[in-house]
Simulated assay, not measured.
Amino acid sequence: MQYAQLRAFHAVAEHGGFSKAAQALSLTQPAISDHVRRLEQDFGVKLFERGPRGVEPTELGRRLFSVTRQMLSCERDARQLLDSASGLESGTLSLAADAPDLAVKLIGAFRKQHPGIVVTLSIANAAECMQRVLSSTVDAGITAAPQVHSRLEARVLRRDPLVAMVPATSPIAKKRKLTYAEFVQQPVIFREAQSVTQQLLEIELVRQSLQVEPVLYVDGREALEEAIAQGMGVGVIASAEFNESRRIRMIPLQDCQVEMIESLTRLAERPASNLLNALFATELG
C-alpha cells in the first residue's frame, strides 16, 4: 500500500468522481484510476461501485474514507506545526474559494510580501468550500457562505450590496436605478440554489412580497453573465463582482437591504500557523 494510492482513493471519495479527483490532485485521470485499481487489487477488495451515474464508495470504502480523512488532517496539522516553527521564506497554502476574483486579489497581495510561498487555489460553490475547510482538506476558504459554525474563525474581506445586471440593448439599461418591482417586470434568470447570491435575492423577493417565474436557471456566475449578455433576461450580482462589459449594464437596486459578505475562513481549533496568520493579516489595499 502506497501513500499515493490512499490520497487518490480519498480524492475520489471526497469529490465523487475520478476526473474531479484528478483535478484536485493535479494528476491525470488514468493515474488516479491506476492508483485506486492497484489499491483494490493489492488487498482483494472493492472500494467503489462504478456505474453510468458515477462512482459511490462501498461500505468498506466509506469506512476507509473516515480513516483517510483523519490521516490527511493529521498530515496537514503536522505541516502547519512545522511551518509555525519556521520563517515565511518557503511553504505551501491550499485555499478554496467560491469565486476567483477576490481570492486571486488576496493571493496576489500575500505573495508580494511572501514570494516564496506556493498557493494552491480550487474553485467550488460556497457550501463545498465550507465543507473543505471543516474537513481540513484545505487550509482556508474565501467564500460568501454564512460563518455560523462554532469551529470556524473568519475575517471579513468585503461587503457589497446586490445590483441588477441587464442587457446593454434593453430599454431599462438607460435607467440609473431600479426597484425590485421594476426588476421583476423583466425576464429574470436565477442562479443555482446553492449560490449565496441566489439565496440573498430570494430573501429580498420574499421581503418585497414579489413573485417571480424565472425564464432560465444557470449554474455559475459566468453562465449568468453570458445569458444576460445575449439578451435572455436580467439577474443580480454583488457589485464588486461585476466585470465591465459592453454587452451588460450594472444598475443599482435602490431598495436593496442585503449585503454579500465575503470572508476568509479557517478552523479555529487547528494548530497555529505562521503562514495562515500572515494570510489573515494581509491587506487587500
Rank of each mutant, 00 (worst) to 15 (best):
S170M: 07
R37P: 03
Q198K: 09
T92W: 06
D98P: 04
L157W: 00
F110V: 00
V118G: 14
R247E: 12
S209I: 10
Q257F: 05
E262M: 10
P214M: 08
L88Y: 03
K175V: 03
C129D: 01
L25G: 10
R50S: 13
L178T: 04
L102R: 01
S135C: 13
V184S: 07
A31L: 07
A272Q: 06
V196F: 01
L284Q: 00
R191S: 14
Q29E: 15
P100G: 06
G108A: 07
M260R: 10
S135N: 14
T120H: 13
N125P: 14
L200Q: 02
A272C: 04
A11I: 05
S195Y: 07
E202R: 12
Q211V: 13
K20L: 15
A193R: 12
M250A: 04
S195L: 03
Q41N: 12
Q257H: 14
F9G: 10
Q198M: 11
F43V: 09
R53N: 11
S122M: 11
A4G: 13
V163K: 09
A124G: 14
Q41W: 05
A127M: 13
T265H: 00
A103C: 00
A238Y: 02
R191F: 07
P252I: 00
V206D: 15
E89C: 09
P171C: 04
T92S: 11
V215Y: 01
A154H: 04
V45H: 06
A109N: 15
P115M: 09
R266T: 00
L88I: 00
H149R: 07
E244I: 07
S86C: 09
N243T: 13
S135H: 06
R221C: 06
R7E: 15
V12E: 14
A145S: 11
E283W: 06
S245F: 02
A96R: 08
P171L: 01
H149N: 12
R7V: 14
R151N: 14
L27V: 08
D34C: 07
E269R: 11
I237E: 03
A281H: 02
V234K: 09
